[in-house]
Write a protein that binds this DNA or RNA. Sequence first.
RNA 1: GGAGAAGUGGCAGAGUGGUCGAAUGCACUGGUCUUGAAAACCAGCGAAGGUAACACUUCCAGGGGUUCGAAUCCCUUCUUCUCCGCCA
Length: 423
Amino acid sequence: MLQIAAIREHKDAYATALKKRNLDALPMLEEAISIDEQRRSIQAQLDETRAKSNSLSKEIGMLFKSGKGAEANELKAQTKELKVKEEELKNASNEAIEKLQTLLYNIPNIPQDSVPAGNSDEDNEVVSQHGDIPQLHENAQPHWELVKKYDIIDFELGTKITGAGFPVYKNKGARLQRALINYFLDKNTAAGYTEMQVPHLVNEASGYGTGQLPDKEGQMYHVGIDDLYLIPTAEVPITNLYRGDLLEAKDLPIAMTGYTPCFRREAGSYGSDVRGLNRLHQFDKVEILRIEHPDHSDAALDAMVVHVKNILEELQLPYRILRLCGGDLGFTSTLTYDFEVYSTAQEKWLEVSSVSNFKTFQSNRLKLRFRNSEGKTELAHTLNGSSLALPRILAGILENYQTENGIRIPDALVPYCGFDTID
RNA sequence: GGAGAAGUGGCAGAGUGGUCGAAUGCACUGGUCUUGAAAACCAGCGAAGGUAACACUUCCAGGGGUUCGAAUCCCUUCUUCUCCGCCA
């Protein structure tokens, strides 16, 4: 959520930047400013009314104390009128706050200068491409065939016990999955990220804190009886650990990593995009998150990109880095780099990581602040990225590392797996 | 799940209807003193809105109510602790 004070100050620049999202935001921004002005004027009247009634109350108290009950009762009568006015102003104020809130919830974050304009994922900018695309043998297969062949993932079993999009990992498939989680976590902790294990269900306040609620309610599974949500990403519980906190500047940066399953309802997709491991209702992901001083968040994002790069290099997977265009940029982000691994058998790029700088967009909702060098409170910046999402990495490994005689395991993973081939 | 107790500033802990945003201690910040440090002493020290700056307003777990006036009384939700039960 944008800060109203910032909108007031940068209205035109914001409107210009939001054009990159194909959004003509100027009317919304102006409306927000106007509602806020109303709100402040109502608040001023309300404050004044309250001040009057507070001072009357004090007077009444003193009169009673000194035994002048009759005079006190006279003053009491005067408070009646004030109370009515107070009630009216309070209602008007609440209404304005609610209107402003609703409006602000619907304005996306401001894209950074480097974000290219564009409508869809086709307009994303390819920043760089790395690694060679392997030449596969003639009978190379997509991963959904390979997993059957080697009996390492069973989609039908998952359907039987739960439903479509909930695969069951078996044998070496299960072990490889576990190996990847450990490997990613080790890489992240070695880079200074503190490992956290967090609940997989969160309350409503957490959903609001990171922006899944109120608008993206349908994305999450909701446990109605306890009013809890299954997390769509570790970002939700881990970022919310710091909800409402006031940090000291010396506490920054805070760097955390965590493995969690992720649950997504993801309605409305079809075809090869959702085949096999490409899109699931439950999948595993290791996430990295940072809480940064505003002066350092840009550099931190670059460092996160380098970190994810290093992992993909070590796994020797062909990948490319995209800078998302305005049209594809997430609602809460100012700048996002996507990492895609090439799926040789499917002949397409699969998104395996998304690394974003949210600046103050989340921290404003979270009320996550720090005390700056002037002793004033200031919103911190939040960033996060996947390092990495498991299913598509798994798909990439299975397809790119397949041979006639089995699937090789990338060298870096062999110690974690305890085997070097799936056959 | 049952019974009881409690939730106050970074922490500890007073405050039970009136000038309380809240005593006191610790922590923290600045200063005096000291060769330096410690100790001691002096001063400051919650957040949000609002203002040019003041003023002013709001916040004592969350929500609602009683009252001219609520940290204090009532209702309700949540959380924590103790005892009992159950249990990986």
